[in-house]
Simulated assay, not measured.
Amino acid sequence: MERENKKMIDSYLSFRLGDEIFALHVGKVQKILEMRDVTEVPRAPDYMKGVINLRGKVLPVIDLRIKFGMQPAGWTKTTCILVVEAEVENEMVVVGLLVDAVQAVQKVKQDEILPPPSIGSKFRSDFISGMTRVNEKFFMVLNIDLVISSDDLINIKEIQDAKEAFEKES
């Protein structure tokens, strides 16, 4: 499906980090993976948990709790990895996002998304494209393109380059 067609979809995947509920546009989510072993990468930022092998490709995994300044938590049977596509500096990257649990896919019309709060939020509001209410619960709708920054892109490229160099030497 082309990017323009994906934007027309009014569905959002909700997920939990601690007591907070977030949502991502389904057009950005490629798949949901059960938790698996993550290979740590030396000298990576704290929120970069490491990499996993996804069909022969290296997939960097970011812990959203740490990225958002929340306390790290142990993995449970509901912990999973969202494989998402983000556009950073006109380049498409695929990364894994470590989340506490996936909730559901919700239909949300664009006019039901309210502007993000300007003060009092413990999260950087530039990540949040809006807030919406579903079944009496507020969801923070994330702009994944802004969650994944250009610094992350540099780290992801370094990880991929290191793996490719290692494979050539083997």
Rank of each mutant, 00 (worst) to 15 (best):
M1F: 11
E2A: 09
E4I: 13
E4M: 10
N5K: 12
K6Q: 13
K6S: 11
K7G: 05
M8D: 09
I9V: 14
I9W: 08
D10Y: 07
D10R: 13
D10M: 08
L13C: 06
S14I: 04
R16W: 06
G18A: 10
I21V: 12
A23V: 03
A23N: 03
L24C: 06
V26K: 03
K28M: 08
Q30H: 12
K31M: 12
I32W: 07
V38Y: 04
T39L: 13
T39C: 10
R43C: 08
A44M: 11
P45A: 09
P45M: 09
P45W: 01
P45Q: 09
K49C: 07
K49A: 07
V51I: 13
N53V: 13
N53M: 12
L54S: 09
L54Q: 09
R55F: 07
R55Q: 13
G56I: 06
G56V: 07
V61Q: 00
V61A: 05
I62H: 00
R65H: 13
I66Y: 03
I66A: 04
I66L: 11
F68M: 14
F68H: 04
Q71H: 15
A73W: 01
G74T: 10
T76W: 07
T76S: 14
T76G: 13
K77N: 15
K77D: 13
T78M: 11
T78K: 11
T79M: 08
T79H: 06
L82R: 01
V83W: 02
V84K: 00
A86C: 11
V88R: 00
N90K: 14
M92A: 15
M92L: 15
V93D: 02
V94N: 06
L97S: 02
V99E: 01
D100P: 03
D100M: 03
D100K: 03
A101N: 08
V102E: 04
Q103D: 14
Q106A: 09
K107V: 14
Q110I: 12
Q110K: 14
D111E: 15
E112L: 05
I113S: 05
L114W: 08
P115R: 09
P116G: 10
I119A: 14
I119G: 08
S121T: 15
F123P: 02
R124D: 15
R124T: 09
S125F: 02
F127E: 00
I128W: 06
I128K: 05
S129Y: 05
G130Y: 04
T132H: 07
V134G: 05
N135F: 11
F139D: 00
F139W: 06
V141M: 10
I144C: 05
D145F: 03
L146T: 05
L146W: 01
I148H: 00
S149D: 06
S149A: 11
S149T: 10
S150L: 07
S150R: 11
D151F: 09
D152R: 02
I154T: 13
I154F: 12
I154M: 11
K157N: 14
I159F: 04
I159T: 12
Q160D: 08
Q160R: 15
D161Q: 15
K163G: 00
E164M: 14
A165W: 10
F166E: 11
E169C: 08
E169A: 15
